[in-house]
Design a protein around this nucleic acid. Structure first.
Length: 639
RNA sequence: GCGCCCGUAGCUCAGUUGGAUAGAGCGUUUGGCUACGAACCAAAAGGUCGCACGUUCGAGUCGUGCCGGGCGCACCA
C-alpha cells in the first residue's frame, strides 16, 4: 500500500523496505524510503518524508505515522488490534508448498574413536538447523555418512592386528567389555599414529589392511567391520544423549560394493569432466582440471580423482555420493533398519543386498546441506565443480557447504587436562584438537561432567525430589547447557573451548533460558494448586482490554518481542545461522526474568490486569518452550 | 606464493540484505531474597569497531591497500 502510494506519487519504483527501529520509542516499523527517493529526486530526505506523511492515506493496523531523524518514516501500530491478533493468531509456515525435500548431512565422524567436542559442534549445528527447517515446514532428511572403509578405521585395525596381535574374537570381547570401546580405540589410534612416526615401515601394514578391507577378505576385513560397527553404535548413543537422531546412515562400503563410483566414473569420463594424464607428475591419474574450481587463477592445480594405481580418492566417492543425494546417479542403496529410537523414530543403514520388502525412499533431494568444517572447503568446491562439469548447474547451486570453524582448546583448558604444550603452542590463542595425537575432550566425558555439576546444584535446591528425578533434571540442564554453548557462537568464529565457560549455568547459557521457562510454568502451576483455572483469554481480553493494558510501554515491548518467534526462526534459516535462534531465546528469557521481577502475577488485585498478566505468562511459557524446542533444549520440570 | 576465515569493552562474543545515541554475557564495584525459590534482578565503570584511503546523504557493515592471528592448498579423509 505504501509502495503503491510512493510509486504513483513519484512515478518511481523504489523498493520500500521495512525495518525495525533501533530504539523502541521510535515506533514499531521504520521506513527509510525517503533516503532512496532523495537520490532520485535530488531533494532533502526530510522534506520528502514530510510530504509523504501529509498525503498518505490511513494504513490498516497503523495508528500513527511520523517523521523522525533525517527522514525516517516511523509507523506506530494499533496496540489493541495487534494484541488481540496475537491471542487468536496461529503460527505461520514459511516453506513454499512445492518445496522439495532437503537433505542435511551432518556428524560424519570416522568410526575409529570416541566423538570429541569438535564433532559435537558439527552435530549440534546440523541437528539444530534441521529443527529450524522442520519448524518452518520444510521436509528434511537427516543423513550421517559413515566412512567405514577408510584409512582411519584401517589404522585402528593395524593397532589391533599387528601391534597387539589380537584376533577378531578378542576384539569382539573388548567391544562388550566394561571399558567403553570407543575410548579404547581413542588411545589406540593415538598410539598407532605416533608409532608410524618412529616406524615408517609400518605404513605398509596400513596399505595391506586397506587392501584387505576393500577386497572384503581376511581377518583385517572382519575386524574393520567389527570396529566400525561398534564405534558407529557408540556415536549414535553419544549423540542421542543430546537428542540428536538420524534418518539414514549411508556407508562407504556400499558406495564401493554397489559400484556407485563406477557409475559416476562413466558419467565423468563421458562428459569430459575428467581426463587421464599421460605425462608429468600426475601421469597415469584421472584428474579434474584445476580451472573448474581454481583458487589460484594464475596457475591452477589439477585435482587427482583416480590414482595411478586405479583406486579412487575420497573426492571421487564424494562426487558419486552427492550425485545420489540429488537422484542423479541412477542407482540406489538397499537398506535395513538399524534400530528404533526410544521415541519410535527409525534409523536405517545402507546395505548391499535387499533384506526387506519395505524399502523406504531416501535421497533424491532438491537441496543439500553438507555440515562440514571450513577446513574442507577446498574439497567441497571440487565436489561442486564435479556436478557442474557434468552439466548439473542447478544442483551445484543447491549444494550448500554449511561450513563452520573448528573447536580448539583454550590454553587454560590444556593445562587442566594435563596436556604438555610446546613453547610455540603456549603463545597461541588456542590449540587445535587432534585425534591423531589423542588431544581433545571426549564428548561423553564432557556430558558426564556437566551432569555431575548440574546434579550438585539440583541436589542443593531440591532435597525433596527422588534421586532418579533429580538425575533426569540434571541431565536436561547439562545437555541444555552444552547445546546452547555450541550454538551461541556464529558459525565462522573459532571456539576456543574452555571448561570453566562451558560448565557455567549463569548468564548467557542454556540453563538461564530454561530457568525462565520453568519460572513461567511455576506461576501457572501455583495457580492450579490454588484450584484456579486459566481463564478463556480470548473471551476476556477484548480488543479494548488489550488496548488498555498495552498502553504500558513495558507490556507493549514484551508482546512485540514475544510474538516474533517465527520471524526470528525464518531469519535464522535465511542467514543459515542457528546462533540467531539461540540469541533470540536468550533475549526472550531476559525479557521474562525482567517481567517476573517487576510484575507479581498471582497477587495482582485488579482483575483485568491479573488476567492480562496470566496471559502474558502463558504466552511467554509457550513461546520460550517452542524456541527451546527448535534448539533441541528441554524444559525441566523444576530447577 | 595462492585461497578462505577472524580482528568490536579487561576477557568471550553479538551486531538482522549500509541507517538514528555501537550491544550482551563474564569479570570488577554497589544495591536487592516476604517463596510466583536469587541458576535471578537493578545500577555504575568500561570503546580510536586493527590502521589508512575510497564509495555514499549515511560505513562496525561495501571496495582497495597495509598490519596482526588462524586454517587450507596430497596419488589422506
Amino acid at each position: 500500500m505504501l509502495r503503491a502510494h510512493v510509486a504513483s506519487r513519484y512515478g518511481a519504483e523504489v523498493p520500500v523496505v521495512l525495518e525495525q527501529p533501533k530504539q523502541p520509542d521510535f515506533g514499531e516499523i521504520a521506513v527509510p524510503v525517503a533516503f532512496q527517493l532523495a537520490r532520485q529526486l535530488r531533494q532533502a530526505p526530510r522534506a520528502i518524508a514530510q510530504q509523504l506523511v501529509s498525503e498518505l492515506p490511513g494504513l490498516p493496523g497503523v495508528s500513527k505515522v511520523e517523521v523522525a531523524g533525517n527522514g525516517y518514516l516511523n509507523l506506530r501500530l494499533d496496540r489493541g488490534a495487534y494484541g488481540y491478533g496475537v491471542i487468536s493468531g496461529a503460527s505461520e509456515k514459511i516453506a513454499p508448498e512445492d518445496a522439495g525435500k532437503i537433505i542435511v548431512e551432518h556428524t560424519n565422524i570416522n568410526p575409529n574413536k570416541a566423538a570429541h567436542i569438535g564433532h559435537l559442534r558439527n552435530a549440534v549445528l546440523g541437528d539444530t538447523f534441521v529443527r529450524m527447517l522442520r519448524s518452518g515446514g520444510y521436509p528434511v532428511e537427516v543423513q550421517n555418512y559413515i566412512d567405514n572403509t577408510g584409512v582411519q578405521v584401517a589404522d585402528v585395525v593395524v593397532a589391533f592386528h599387528y601391534l597387539e596381535k589380537r584376533t577378531p574374537g578378542e576384539v569382539a570381547a573388548l567391544i562388550s567389555d566394561q571399558r567403553p570401546f570407543d575410548y579404547v580405540c581413542w588411545d589406540l589410534y593415538a598410539h598407532v599414529s605416533s608409532y608410524y612416526k618412529t616406524h615408517p615401515e609400518a605404513l605398509a601394514w596400513r596399505a595391506e589392511t586397506l587392501h584387505a578391507i576393500e577386497a572384503g577378505e581376511g581377518e583385517q576385513a572382519e575386524m574393520a567391520h567389527l570396529v566400525a560397527d561398534a564405534i558407529v553404535e557408540a556415536h549414535i548413543r553419544t549423540m542421542l544423549r543430546l537428542g540428536i537422531v538420524y534418518d539414514v546412515l549411508p556407508r562407504e562400503s556400499e558406495i564401493l560394493h554397489l559400484k556407485f563410483w563406477a557409475t559416476a566414473f562413466e558419467q565423468l569420463k563421458e562428459r569430459g569432466a575428467i581426463h587421464i594424464e599421460t605425462e608429468g607428475k600426475n601421469a597415469g591419474c584421472w584428474v579434474m582440471r584445476g580451472a573448474a574450481f581454481s583458487q589460484d587463477a594464475e596457475n591452477p592445480d589439477d585435482k587427482i580423482i583416480v590414482r595411478s594405481n586405479g583406486t579412487v580418492t575420497y573426492v571421487g566417492k564424494d562426487i558419486a555420493y552427492q550425485l545420489w543425494k540429488f537422484g542423479l546417479l541412477g542407482k540406489d542403496f538397499f537398506y535395513r533398519r538399524l534400530m528404533i529410537y526410544p521415541n519410535g523414530h527409525e534409523l536405517w543403514v545402507s546395505t548391499d543386498e535387499q533384506v526387506t520388502e519395505q524399502i523406504p525412499s531416501f535421497g533424491a533431494a532438491s537441496r543439500v546441506y553438507n555440515v562440514i568444517d571450513s577446513r574442507q572447503s577446498y574439497l567441497q568446491d571440487v565436489v561442486v565443480a564435479g556436478l557442474r562439469a557434468l552439466g548439473y548447474d542447478e544442483q551445484a547451486d543447491r549444494s550448500i557447504h554449511f561450513s563452520y570453524e573448528m573447536v580448539a582448546l583454550s590454553p587454560r583448558t590444556c593445562v587442566q587436562l594435563g596436556i604438555e604444550l610446546s613453547e610455540e603452542d603456549k603463545r597461541r590463542p588456542y590449540v587445535e584438537v587432534s585425534g591423531r595425537k589423542g588431544l581433545g575432550v571426549k564428548a561423553d566425558d564432557l556430558v558426564n561432567e556437566l551432569i555431575e555439576t548440574a546434579l550438585r546444584e539440583v541436589e542443593s535446591r531440591h532435597s525433596e525430589a527422588s534421586d532418579e528425578d533429580r538425575r533426569q533434571v540434571a541431565t536436561q540442564i547439562a545437555t541444555g547447557a552444552l547445546r546452547y554453548f555450541m550454538l551461541k557462537f556464529t558459525r565462522n568464529s573459532v571456539i576456543a573451548f574452555d571448561f570453566q565457560e562451558a560448565l557455567s549455568f549463569e548468564g548467557e547459557t542454556g540453563p538461564y533460558v530454561q530457568y525462565a521457562a520453568v519460572r513461567a510454568a511455576n506461576i501457572l502451576r501455583k495457580l492450579a494448586e490454588r484450584g484456579e483455572q486459566l481463564p478463556d483469554f480470548q473471551a476476556v481480553l477484548t480488543k479494548e482490554a488489550m488496548a488498555r493494558q498495552l498502553e504500558s510501554e513495558d507490556f507493549w515491548q514484551i508482546v512485540l518481542a514475544v510474538s516474533k518467534v517465527d520471524t526470528a526462526i525464518a531469519r535464522a534459516i535465511e542467514s543459515g545461522e542457528p546462533a540467531h535462534v539461540a540469541k533470540y531465546a536468550f533475549q526472550l528469557a531476559q525479557l521474562f526474568n525482567n517481567f517476573y521481577h517487576g510484575y507479581p502475577v498471582l497477587s495482582e488485585q485488579n482483575a483485568e490486569r491479573r488476567t492480562f498478566l496470566l496471559w502474558m505468562t502463558e504466552y511467554f511459557r509457550k513461546q520460550l518452550e517452542r524456541t527451546l524446542d527448535v534448539l533441541g533444549i528441554a524444559v525441566p520440570a523444576y530447577m
